[in-house]
Design a protein around this nucleic acid. Sequence first.
DNA 1: TTGAAAGCGCTAACAG
DNA 2: CTGTTAGCGCTTTCAA
Lengths: 379, 379
Amino acid sequence: MPATIRDVANRAGVSVATVSRLLNGTGRVGPDAAARVQAAIAALGFRPNGMGRSLKSRRSRLIGVMIPSLGNPVFADAVAGIEAEARAAGFTLLFGVSNYDAAEERRAVEALLAYRVDGMILTVAAPATSPALDSLDQAGLPHVLIYNQPAPTRAVPTVTVDNVAAGRAVALHMVALGHRRLGMITGALGGSDRAAARLAGFLDGARASGLTRPCVHEVDFEAPDPDAALTAFASGPDGLPTALFCSNDWLAIATIGALTRRGLSVPGDVSVFGFDGIALGAHLNPPLATVVQPSRAMGGIAARHLIALMSADGGRPAPGSVPGHHLLPFTLRPAGSTGPVCFTRPSPIVAPVETTGNAAKQAPAASPVADLDLSTRTS
Amino acid sequence: MPATIRDVANRAGVSVATVSRLLNGTGRVGPDAAARVQAAIAALGFRPNGMGRSLKSRRSRLIGVMIPSLGNPVFADAVAGIEAEARAAGFTLLFGVSNYDAAEERRAVEALLAYRVDGMILTVAAPATSPALDSLDQAGLPHVLIYNQPAPTRAVPTVTVDNVAAGRAVALHMVALGHRRLGMITGALGGSDRAAARLAGFLDGARASGLTRPCVHEVDFEAPDPDAALTAFASGPDGLPTALFCSNDWLAIATIGALTRRGLSVPGDVSVFGFDGIALGAHLNPPLATVVQPSRAMGGIAARHLIALMSADGGRPAPGSVPGHHLLPFTLRPAGSTGPVCFTRPSPIVAPVETTGNAAKQAPAASPVADLDLSTRTS
DNA sequence: TTGAAAGCGCTAACAG
DNA sequence: CTGTTAGCGCTTTCAA
């Protein structure tokens, strides 16, 4: 049995109140008493019981964290950011995983709620309809979303990037490189509102560039099978796209693997663009072209924001420190896995490429309707 | 204010004891009373307070998890395994990170201990001298180590692979491929007993093969700088090794990047072997040769073992269910990043290669002292 | 089958 | 500056 505050008090010849005061720095304690208490604490190896403390003070100093999966490093990065910030503020993390599933989200949130976390940081499948968020709202527990799209129907602080704009930027970038047949491989849209937003932006970008609607294929998050998607693409009317946008890096890497196994070169035959900017991507060969979002910072900002929210909780919504959403900047990393369109394969050129001034700078866009140039590229 | 068990009891017209009994399935409850209680629980949205529950029952149903870092996917994988198993058994995870630092380990463990976790799963820098383990021992808290080497001086259950044997196997494999100048890039040995064990095995394998002691360079875990290590190798007496063993995949990937940036090809100029078998490695180009350890299973097994330990806690060390160490099997994945030695560069051949029967099967070992063959390989 | 009552370890008034 | 005391929400004897 661990020592209790009472044991310490007895040994030091003071009351438990004195020990408590010393422990929490609340109220003055005489130097001699303090010394005796310190000695007793050390001698007994006393460690204040967080449970008792939380029960009485009604603050657990626990932050709940729930993410869809630990398999995708992007979430691990965010958790690392949360952990660092939370620890610095004296909070400990209670952790749950949802596997991209709404029912599991609810279960996980209930579990964290049971321990009376002071607040929660999470990513849900779909904020608008999330039962987990319903629980949180009903409990009146401060919480902030990360990665999710800000839900118009629900006023919950969200730290994220503009996924729609990012998706659009990817499409424009591809077009600027001369690609006309774009495609997207996305994780299950029902399990990820951000994937849906990226898709929406991507389609919009393609449309704005005068392209027909890119083909889209969904794959499972947990056991993605890009090969099936590639087969589906290939057997479609337009054949395999020359540029593929994947809804996350994890998927993009699997896709590159599947392409390579088919004997296709990246970016020679097919360009691949990912999303997230996980650290490993930069080390790949070729380096993974991707939309970089500041995951660790995202976690850190969410934590700071949540902590502010929790302190403000006792009063009115706080002066100006409790805004709505944090839209963090993303950057395009147009690395090796994406390049100018290759004309060695028959590709139905429909209209001249309209390069946007900015993207044109990134890479010398392939001359608009240049025809087959078999000399230099041979796959 | 969340509803309490008292609120439920009042609303249902029963005593709190009855509610508690229904909640925990301990003791019989009349059907009518049960129905009224259920109704009250639903109506009030009652969620039993884990703090109060833990305080009284002296069991928190919390499992503490502490790992060195979330940046390396191998730990995230293990946590995923722990989480799945823990959840299935009704436990929630309390989470901490140590950054490969003994002092931080202690701090993290103290934090988890404060919440009276029922048990703990962790990876420490050095089990023999870990103050964190001292705390755990002193508190009498069940715990199991993962990834760590079983410490002879401390009787703590450990789930891991045989790092020494694995390191040795890597060396033998390299030798079988004709490599004579081996090298190792390792994370700080003081922060990782397993890295030290891998090194020991590797050196032993090299020695057993009649090679001189391979060069070794340590790099930082958090911000590894393989380039500095490469420079150090290159300026050494033997020059750059033809085969490099990295103490983990993360490092191996960074090393491949650094080599490529120097214009060296992998495995053409230098073979690289990693350790861990993180999923991403298989998708690299070339695929990462590595020692695969079953991380997720490791986490799961550790969790199951811990849970058994915790149940047994109330009595004697339990019948046969509380053994010491679990040594899980590892497998070599001799993928693309490691290949036969390349003879286009001057390499001091010292003695004929003695191939071990087994490894020879993996790849057609380069003919022992074949001389320069510039025709086929050109970088 | 049910209820009354005694705390688990701690904090926070309130007296002194 | 210090001690007394009343719970926080819950489980668990012990009687009824």
